[in-house]
Design a protein around this nucleic acid. Structure first.
Lengths: 225, 225
DNA sequence: CCCCGACTAGCACACCGTACTAGTACGGCG
DNA sequence: CGCCGTACTAGTACGGTGTGCTAGTCGGGG
């Protein structure tokens, strides 16, 4: 916690860890400046120094989560419930999108590649390949969960397509100028989508069951001191 | 106008009118208690008396506006089931997107308006207004269905946001070169999304005592009344 | 008559995000 | 060595939000 030793791990990291932990305990929690600062044991001034705006905090937290949420495919992780695993996997797809300017850059690429140019048969087939690849990946995850009985063994394509649509919407919203906190909205939406496919968690239910999953990465981040 | 004549038209109506006017002038405007009260020429206390919570104000305003502008919203069609009505309403939002080249054109507009240019505060607020408008509309639909008991009465924002994300994903996919039959996939996805928020369509489908009293708003500043 | 309920006004409170200032530790430089 | 600039922290202040509480006004019915 020294002010200026070689590693400035002190405050910035503590804040991030605290915020992650709070998110883990309750995804709907309000990550207010003071709450996070208190939890991290730093002052709001320090927090503001490292994260000049609330958006910055949320952005950093978002990238942190997606960065090392899980290095490899968490689909088989036995420590996680089905819906947590599914959400983690979906986040894997969402991760390369990035946030903020990065997300906009990604969308520029997509736009110039597939939407702006003339729609030739060649272009179509190229995109069809990409789409099929994502679809295959999601379907693979779903099939594993179907094996576990988490959802009925039937044609999983509609569900997979549905999830892909949600992911498309989310990445789209990442590129748009959203003034509101992306973090919570995105998490909630992901769990809603997972529940829709898995049949778990009726509407009114709170997603507090996620503490297991997010808690893991939170502990990872906060283990510094 | 008098305080207590037969009709209490005085304050309640003035507040509603003021709020509607403010929203008409600037959809991105923040309908804060004090701003609306000042505009209406009443005190925040009076406003609070008629609309005990901000949600109540927004709800009343929402019904008023949409009843006036969209009298034949399919949301009221008694011949349709809840999920059919919801899907029909969602299609209303999706409709202006168009399909094929038209959808790409629409997307180009959005791209050049909100993603490509520099992200100024002005741009942000403009988009925030649009987003909030859509969110309001969807929330309105959901609130009606909540009145019917089709889904638990709680904070409908997450669900509405979820549906908007799905719509965003769908309109995005309309712009992309998709070789397969868009219509069927879209319909399936829409119904999956509707089922996700309504809780219908699942194999088990237990009516289940909705945990209405859940303090699902632990995140809501923690000030539980 | 007086009292009661509908209504109004206004302030107080807790919380939010952000700006700003004072103070402290450290490294480099004359 | 002393000095200064940089990095960082703490604390406070300001304007904003939604909500609760209390005192006060009005009109009509016991």
């Amino acid at each position: 916690m020294e002010t200026h030793d070689g590693r400035n791990v002190s405050s910035r990291e503590k804040v991030l860890a605290a915020a992650a932990a709070m998110m883990a305990e309750n995804p709907a929690a309000n990550l207010s400046v003071r709450a996070v600062a208190a939890r991290a044991g730093v002052s709001v001034g320090s927090l503001r120094f490292h994260f000049p705006t609330q958006d910055a905090l949320q952005g950093a937290l978002l990238t942190r989560i997606y960065d090392h949420f899980f290095p490899e495919d968490p689909i088989r992780d036995p420590a996680l419930s089905a819906r947590d695993r599914l959400v983690a996997c979906l986040r894997q797809i969402l991760a390369p999108t990035g946030v903020g300017a990065e997300a906009r850059k990604a969308w520029e690429t997509v736009y110039k590649a597939f939407i702006e140019p003339e729609q030739t048969a060649d272009l179509r087939s190229t995109y069809a390949g990409i789409e099929r690849e994502s679809l295959r990946r999601v379907t693979y995850w779903l099939s594993i969960m179907a094996d576990e009985g988490a959802l009925p063994r039937a044609d999983l394509t509609p569900q997979a397509r549905f999830l892909l649509t949600v992911l498309n919407g989310l990445s789209y919203e990442r590129a748009l100028p959203s003034s509101e906190s992306l973090l919570q909205a995105e998490t909630t939406t992901l769990y809603l989508a997972a529940d829709a496919v898995l049949g778990t968690g009726r509407t009114g239910e709170r997603p507090e069951t996620t503490s297991a999953s997010t808690g893991q990465f939170a502990g990872d981040a906060g283990s510094a001191p």
